[in-house]
Design a protein around this nucleic acid. Structure first.
Lengths: 125, 125
DNA sequence: ATCACTCCTCTACATTTGTAGTAGATCTGC
DNA sequence: GCAGATCTACTACAAATGTAGAGGAGTGAT
């Protein structure tokens, strides 16, 4: 059930994004490299976040020798779907007109809107 | 600039939603009544949130006699637009295909998707 | 065996958030 | 003008979050 996926705080989400971007098996160093560009942090900070993500069930941690291998336990697609639902409900109050207005009224550019419409047509046919 | 609007924690957002739902002038009792249904909390909890929202610039507090009048300083529309942008960027990594997939892949129901497409067509013509 | 290096676990601490009690100020009915 | 009701400001505290240091344990070179 995607509805059971809780919202991650910003920092942890960035770590998950990095994890989702990697090809398994993923080691700490892989994540560190990706995060260097988007959100630099001390190595121990990264490790703290990984531990917390493990406790929350977003990833699994397995030892391979002295190193740990981090594997997503929630897919990026499921997370995005769950969070878009929750955004729709909590921020837009479950109102589609409000959601549409948020997107066309500043959330997306004119060009992005055009592309979104196109993508939605395609997906839904 | 809608881009400068920071994300509110869930509790404070619920209070703002109640505030946006009211017709001015809005007193604490008006908010209390609305929140009773969605998110009951002690009166002092509500006051704490209102104070914090004031500090964050989301509303203004004026004394009218011994009572306070609360007025939104950020419109619901601006907040929704800003947060939808930020959702698009932080959760979907700025990828429209990802965003569209999140919506069609579980974020919205089939029927909601149909309506959203319709609304977007209309808005954008 | 030992030194240097690497990797992770534990601990720590400030800030933010959710929640609410206490107390002081102000009406209001009598 | 006093008692009770009402309203807000101040204070408090636990949990979550962002950030990172200290230290122990494994590994490789000498």
């Amino acid at each position: 059930m995607i509805s059971n996926i809780r919202r991650l705080p910003d920092g942890e989400l960035e770590v998950m994004q990095a994890l989702w971007d990697c090809t398994p098996p993923v080691f700490r160093s892989d994540l560190e490299e990706i995060l260097q560009k988007t959100h630099p942090m001390a190595m121990t900070t990264l490790l703290t976040m990984l531990t917390r993500l493990g406790e929350k069930g977003f990833l699994t941690i397995e030892k391979q020798g002295r190193r740990s291998v981090y594997t997503p336990a929630v897919s990026r697609e499921d997370y995005q779907a769950a969070q878009s639902r929750s955004f729709f409900e909590k921020v837009c109050g479950g109102s589609l007109p409000a959601f549409a207005a948020a997107l066309s009224g500043g959330g997306l550019t004119r060009e992005e809107l055009r592309q979104l419409r196109e993508l939605l047509e395609r997906d839904e046919l």
